[in-house]
């Protein structure tokens, strides 16, 4: 077997650029999908039945289709529906945000729903206002349940960004696959890709475990 691991060093800046795109996609998606999730969660609590139905339909639909299909769909359908040519990066960002917002909406809803009704009653009985009860009693408790799940979602998202490579977003996966087909250094490049994802993802997975241990609520 004739291997040339020097190829990785040779293309280090391209790979680094790919890592940059992967990280940027992860961060931007989360920045969109946390407010997005809150908005959809609130939609589901709306007084109007139609809006509630819409919120629920959104969450159920986007949690129940494969992300890679959503990426293709956004790639082909968005430009036609909106009449705007999006860049591959923006298209990927939209697909990821649509998906992660649905998960976040459910995470936040479940976090709030998990707090016993008695907690609100106890706070109100003490003479707190409704907003004081939310701020001082309900939200702090809900956050303890929401944050660990958001952290897990973060790691999944980091990995899922690799799926936008199919529409030629220059993320780590796409960059590595491109270099592979240009140089025919298949084993070296694919192993390097796996190793880089591992090096970035492993500490994140460990960090998530730590967050779950520190903040997680055991029932």
């Amino acid at each position: 077997m004739n291997l040339d691991w020097g190829i990785i060093w040779q293309y280090r800046w391209d790979l680094a650029h790919g890592v940059g795109i992967t990280v940027a996609l992860t961060v931007l998606t989360m920045l969109i999908a946390v407010p997005g999730g809150i908005a959809i969660m609130m939609l589901r609590q709306s007084r109007y039945r139609v809006l509630r139905g819409l919120g629920t339909a959104y969450v159920e639909f986007f949690r129940n289709v494969p992300l890679i299909l959503l990426v293709y769909w956004a790639f082909y359908v968005l430009p036609i529906l909106t009449d705007i040519q999006f860049s591959a990066f923006t298209t990927g960002l939209v697909a990821l945000s649509l998906n992660v917002s649905a998960y976040n909406a459910e995470t936040i809803r479940a976090g709030i729903a998990s707090i016993r009704k008695g907690q609100l009653e106890a706070a109100l009985a003490m003479g707190m206002s409704h907003s004081q009860a939310m701020r001082k009693v309900l939200i702090p408790q809900a956050l303890r349940r929401i944050l660990p799940v958001l952290a897990s979602t973060w790691v999944s998202l980091f990995k899922d960004t690799s799926l936008v490579s199919v529409i030629a977003v220059g993320d780590l996966a796409h960059t590595a696959l491109q270099i592979r087909s240009q140089t025919f250094r298949v084993l070296e490049m694919l192993t390097a890709m796996a190793a880089i994802y591992w090096a970035l993802g492993y500490p994140q997975a460990k960090l998530v475990d730590w967050i779950h241990r520190k903040y997680g609520v055991t029932e």
Binding site: M1, V155, K159, D160, S162, L163, S165, A173, L177, R180, V186, L187, L190, T191, M193, A194, Y197, W198, L200, G201, Y202, Q204, A205, K206
Partner: peptide, 23 residues
């Protein structure tokens, strides 16, 4: 287990199909 939590399934898939045979 922790490695699988860190590496995207796409990467495992592509590696198994393209790199594993070379190895």
């Amino acid at each position: 287990v922790d490695s699988m939590r860190a590496i995207p399934v796409l990467v495992v898939l592509v590696w198994t199909f393209f790199a594993f045979p070379i190895l």
